[in-house]
Each structure stands twice: as C-alpha cells, then as structure tokens.
Amino acid sequence: MKILVCISEVPDTTSKIKHINDNKELDKTGIQWIINPWDELSLTRAIELKETPGSKVESITVVHVGLQDSEPTIRKALAMGADNAIRIDAQPQDAYYVASQLAKTIASMDFDIILTGLDSADFNGSSVGGMLAQQLDMASISAVTALNLEGEKILVNRDVSGGTQTLEVQPPFLATVQKGIAIDPRIPAMRGIMMARSKPLEVLEATNEVTPLTEYVSYEVPPPREACRKFPEENAKELAHALHNEAKLI
C-alpha cells in the first residue's frame, strides 16, 4: 500500500501578517514557514500507520507545489518520516491551480491513499483535496478524524452534518483530514533529521496548461475589536444584565 501526502507551506501561526505593494501581497519578511498544520497531522498519521508492526504500508510520498525556497519544509516532512518527496516547481496561484498541478503529476502514479489537510492556515479555503479527487476521478472522504487499517479493511471516521460516521472504503481514495486523525504532529527525531538529507526529493516541472479560477486582488487588516468592558469578580450579575440589555444576546 502506497500513501501520498500533499503538503503545503504556510506562515507559522504566531507570525504577524502584514501586506505590502498596495496591500496586494503578503509581506514575507520575518515569516517562518511551516508545514500546514492539517497536512502535518495527516503525515503524522501516515507515519504511524507505516510504523505499526506488520503494516501493509510500503511507502509514504509527500508532494508539494512550490518554488525552491520551500524545500526546507519538504525536508522536514522527510525528517518526520516520509520516504520520498516530489516538488512541483510552480508558484501556487489558487487552490484550483495547485490541485490541477497535483492532478497532472499524480494521474500517472499509483497511490492507494491520498491524504490532504481539510484546511490550510493561509487561504483557509478547504479546497485542494476535493478538487484533486475530482480531477483524478477518485472517491473522496471529507472531514476525516480517524484512518485505520484493520486486516484487509480500511476504516475511516468522518464528521457529517449532524454526527459522525465510520465508513469502510475501497482504495484508491482521497481523504481530507482534520484533528483527531493524529493528536500532535510528529516531532522529527535526530535519526530522521540525519536521514532526510539522503532521501530522494524529485523536482518536476509544472504544466502551463492550468489557469486559476480565482484571483486574490488585495488584502486588508480586520478592524480592531473594541476595548473589553471588564466587570469586577463579584459582579457577574452586571455582566448578565449587559448581555441581556445592551448586547441583547440572552
């Protein structure tokens, strides 16, 4: 069984987000780039599955669409435990562009399970996975919170509107995953960091046949919230009245 994990690169959660060039671009100064947290969890789960004694998982490949400066992020995925990596050499434009690049590359490859993060910490679009599955004409399962291999069976849990479900799925399929699939992202071990250097990272040319469907025209900073109105500890009653009379929420 071969697993493919799609990873994207996003600013670290604690990074300050500012824009330059007439608010048309992200100011990249001082930003630390990390593996998108959802993708990191999906990779963590793939590694856990591979490490299980008697596992049927033969290999974990990570794939990323980005320019050369994103290679440290890919190396980290290899240090965590992926076996090999593919970088599609293109500047991401929108989710459809990224999904199309991925689809063109993956179409000729053979994977049983493709994992993508349900969301991403940059454009928060929740889009690439579903678009990719559609382009590959592959079954997709969204909002996955667990992925288990039990004998010949592949079982996944997912959130649906109004509950949770356990499904049995036939490969190949694509799952967009969220928290629960793994709890904490894998911290790379010394051995993994040392080995990451020598693991294969293949760079593939992007296709110029795809065009984005959307364009990020400009950005603005969200208006600051008004100052907090604080009540003394013993005055919960006043707060309740403010919520009732002022905010009219209760």
């Binding site: 999904a99 990719l132 969204s142 909002a143 509107s161 469907l213």
Partner: peptide, 22 residues
C-alpha cells in the same frame, strides 16, 4: 460546514467554477 467542505471543491473542479469559501 462539513457538507459544504465535502462538496464545493469537487463541484468547483467539475464545473470549472471559481470557489470562495467562508
């Protein structure tokens, strides 16, 4: 929600219709 997240990306790719979520 989970339904929208499950359907819209595929729908976008199938119809080649630009998607903006949230």
């Amino acid at each position: 929600n989970t339904t929208g997240k499950a359907l819209t990306p595929g729908l976008s790719a199938k119809l080649k219709a630009g998607l903006v979520s949230g």
